[in-house]
């Protein structure tokens, strides 16, 4: 977990910036290695999220072949309680029945949690390993990439619009913009209010997750810097234990945060889609 050879203030900034730079391909800035335009691929984000998604599929597939309706064994127990948990959330907050909602909620919870979990891996471990293979930049937490969080929230947003139109009809959906929340005498205000309300849904979903994870990652980087910058000579006897202690504390706290964020994303998705399914406001 120790930071690389960085002793001065500028290299501290460099260290952090280096860690927060994605492995870019396509239209990238050759100097800063940041995306220069929309047409840049963040390979690390894609790689880790795909691997974690594949992990979910592989583990589920293996589990699904050994399912038993009798007395469930260890891992099946866990998977069942997870499914029951999501199922309860959906039943509690979602009006009516839609076969898409629960699997999506489960996917969000699992995938977001796993991507968040990458945050708990020591910040330098994977980048250092990658550097052995000649990969200079690696940002291991996909949810600290706005592309990921917006991909999730915009997909949800698309579904919100789809179900709004499906349930209320195109006219019903437009009426919602015109006459909600203040009735027919304040139509312009209503349009602005509803527009903000609707746009706030994907924005808040994406930014909340991104902000929490980005900040968490940053704190891990700062804690890692303690060992890297201060632990010189005898001072290491003080700073290294402090770093370990702080890291452990933040790790435990962050474990709660990543679970909470995955849960919030899931629940809000259910709530927003539930709102899209209700006709009267």
């Amino acid at each position: 977990m120790s930071a690389k050879e960085s002793s001065s203030g500028s290299s501290t900034v460099e260290y952090i910036q280096h860690h927060l730079t994605n492995l870019c391909a396509g239209d990238c800035d050759p100097v800063t290695h940041k995306a220069a335009s929309f047409w840049a691929w963040h390979l690390d984000t894609l790689f880790f999220s795909f691997v974690l998604g594949a992990l979910i599929v592989a583990v589920s597939w293996r589990l699904s072949r050994r399912l038993t309706a009798g007395v469930p064994g260890g891992f099946q127990n866990f998977a069942e309680s997870l499914v029951e948990f999501v199922s309860t959330q959906v039943k509690d907050t979602f009006p009516g029945y839609n076969p898409l909602i629960a699997p999506m909620a489960l996917t969000i919870f699992l995938w977001v949690w796993l991507m968040n979990f990458m945050d708990l891996i020591p910040v330098d471990l994977l980048p250092v390993i990658a550097s052995f293979f000649g990969i200079q930049y690696l940002k291991v937490v996909p949810t600290t990439d706005l592309s990921t969080t917006f991909a999730l929230s915009l997909t949800v947003f698309a579904l919100i619009i789809y179900y709004n139109i499906k349930v209320k009809g195109v006219l019903g959906y437009l009426k919602m913009f015109l006459f909600h929340p203040f009735g027919k005498y304040l139509v312009p205000v209503n349009i602005v209010m509803t527009l903000i309300e609707e746009l706030a849904k994907p924005l808040s979903l994406a930014l909340r997750l991104f902000g929490n994870l980005f900040a968490g990652e940053l704190v891990f980087l700062l804690i890692a810097l303690i060992g890297g910058t201060m632990a010189v000579g005898l001072a290491a006897l003080f700073w290294l234990p402090l770093q370990v202690l702080l890291d452990l504390g933040w790790l435990i706290f962050h474990l709660l945060i990543i679970t909470l964020q995955a849960f919030i994303f899931m629940v809000l998705t259910i709530v927003y889609l539930g709102m899209a399914h209700t006709t009267e406001h």
């Binding site: 999506m104 489960l106 996917t107």
Partner: peptide
């Protein structure tokens, strides 16, 4: 926000399909 967004969206949709197929459905 880059074109990664599109890739992640595709991955998300695909993953929902897979989870429904191999985890949610059977369980």
């Amino acid at each position: 926000i880059t074109v990664t967004l599109i890739g992640q969206m595709a991955a998300f949709v695909l993953l929902i399909w897979f989870v429904n197929k191999v985890l949610w459905g059977p369980l």
